[in-house]
């Protein structure tokens, strides 16, 4: 195929668009390791700001990771069985429940936070603990877990698999953990990555729910931007990237693997 002007103009446009997105990221990351942003790179590179961020915000970063993990555990424990019931025993009630579950995704995080504050704001021990933020994150991320797992479960004829296992003597729990869960793994993994990523990056809700003692990573970031010198905010962004990028890459790899598996052609011959 000859490459004509159309090809080159498309290539050009793609590059420009990519640069448009990538340049600010690089600029911001660079700013985090520059001695003085206003003087530019000529002022030299340093890790000083990164360490400073760590000193100031280690608490927030660790809290965020902790909340993300707790959120993952809760959404796994609640989401996998929920997805199972949704797919296996569909009814009008369950559909309604699914809609209800998706509501926190549809309404603005601020509104959800407000609702939580109005309802539980008075419970002082709870209001001031990280569990309050966890509640918000679980409400916000659970639908993603459920959807992701349910999609895989819906595609795998669970009824038939379970009947096969039951005929071999397997009771419910054995079927659930030995057959259903392993076969739903792609959905569970995808859901897990999504939940962790969303939880670490969540700002809207968290900003409303946090207290000075329960600041998460993105809240700390806003704080750094607002009150510190620009280099510190940028170094903070850098740390954020380092944390979130592996998750995003893993998510992409997982999606690719799923696509490749479904594209595989059945080469087995019916020679037997």
């Amino acid at each position: 195929m000859r490459r004509d002007w159309k090809f080159y103009s498309q290539l050009g446009l793609t590059i420009v668009l990519c640069l448009f997105i990538v340049v600010p990221v690089v600029m911001s990351a660079l700013a985090g390791v520059t001695v003085n942003v206003f003087k530019g790179l000529s002022s030299g590179l340093t890790l000083r700001w990164v360490f400073e961020v760590w000193d100031l915000y280690a608490q927030s970063i660790l809290l965020s990771l902790g909340i993300a993990m707790a959120c993952l555990v809760v959404t796994l424990l609640a989401g996998v069985p929920l997805a199972y019931v949704l797919v296996r025993r569909p009814s009008r009630m369950m559909r309604l429940f699914e809609e209800l579950l998706t509501l926190p995704v549809a309404i603005p995080g601020l509104a959800l936070a407000l609702a939580l504050l109005i309802t539980y704001g008075g419970v002082s021990g709870y209001r001031s603990s990280w569990l309050f933020i966890l509640t918000g994150h679980v409400l916000f991320t659970l639908p993603f877990m459920v959807r992701s797992v349910a999609a895989v479960m819906a595609a795998m004829d669970m009824k038939m698999l379970e009947e096969g296992a039951a005929s071999l003597g397997a009771g419910f729990w054995r079927r659930f953990f030995g057959v259903i869960v392993p076969n739903a793994k792609p959905g569970i993994l995808a859901g897990a990555l999504m939940v962790v990523t969303l939880s670490i990056g969540e700002f809207n809700l968290t900003w409303m729910l946090h207290t000075p003692l329960t600041k998460t990573l993105p809240v700390g970031l806003a704080d750094a931007y607002a009150s510190m010198r620009l280099e510190i905010g940028s170094a903070y962004t850098l740390i954020f990237f380092v944390l979130i990028m592996p998750l995003l890459i893993a998510m992409q790899a997982l999606a690719d693997r799923g696509k490749r598996a479904s594209r595989r052609i059945d080469t087995a011959e019916d020679t037997l």
């Binding site: 795998m156 004829d157 038939m160 698999l161 009947e163 096969g164 057959v179 392993p182 076969n183």
Partner: peptide, 10 residues
Amino acid sequence: VFQSYALFPN
């Protein structure tokens, strides 16, 4: 034994 086999893919 089922028409659609019902084997465990995992």
